[in-house]
């Protein structure tokens, strides 16, 4: 079961689209667990939120073994600075773990037109698939059409595909099957 937890107000239609897409992508039931408070302790002096700490401090929700929980927020996230700089944070996840975080902060504005909302929803689905993919131990994929391609990649179009390519899909299916047994 994939459990969606919102740490900010989200449109119901957006969440419904997301649930459906996640179910289709992973073949696993998906449910919105409701809203929870954003853990303020993760806020940095510059107003951004430490992605690692935010996920760490995210309010726990009832989940069973093998459940995956994805927290949605809209605040700007920060990653720890790396050897060559700070990679843009679109979310975070515990590789092979149970909790993932996705922020809509870097998305194109949702807007009010059917088209812009569609793009927004697809992006939301893509990022959730990406970070949930990490939970199933998927790594990044060099195929820009795959949801496991880095979210900030220069090869990624503004409105990227939101599915896994066959390599990543097969791999996640194997993992999921193993988890179920």
């Amino acid at each position: 079961m994939i459990r969606i937890v919102t740490l900010a107000p989200f449109d119901e239609g957006d969440i419904a689209f997301l649930s459906k897409t996640l179910y289709r992508s992973f073949g696993i039931g998906t449910e919105h667990q409701g809203d929870r408070a954003l853990p303020r302790k993760a806020e940095l002096p510059d107003g951004r939120f430490d992605a690692l700490k935010l996920l760490d401090d995210a309010p726990p929700v009832r989940a069973y073994a093998d459940d995956k929980v994805v927290y949605l927020t809209d605040v700007e996230l920060a990653n720890p600075k790396g050897p060559l700089g700070e990679p843009p944070a679109w979310g975070h996840a515990l590789q092979g773990g149970e909790r993932a975080l996705v922020s809509t902060f870097r998305f194109r504005p949702r807007g009010v037109t059917e088209a812009s909302i569609e793009v927004y929803r697809r992006r939301l689905a893509r990022e959730c698939i990406h970070f949930i993919g990490h939970l199933w131990d998927l790594h990044h994929c060099y195929d820009a059409r795959c949801a496991m391609h880095p979210s900030w990649s220069p090869s990624l179009p503004e409105d990227p595909e939101f599915e896994l390519d066959s390599f990543c899909r097969d791999k996640s299916e194997r993992r999921i099957r193993l988890a179920k047994t």
Partner: peptide, 18 residues
Amino acid sequence: VPAVIAEDYIDYALMPPA
């Protein structure tokens, strides 16, 4: 650092953002 961050570092080097 967590694995996901380590991987971000790797790809940040391989395919830096525009």
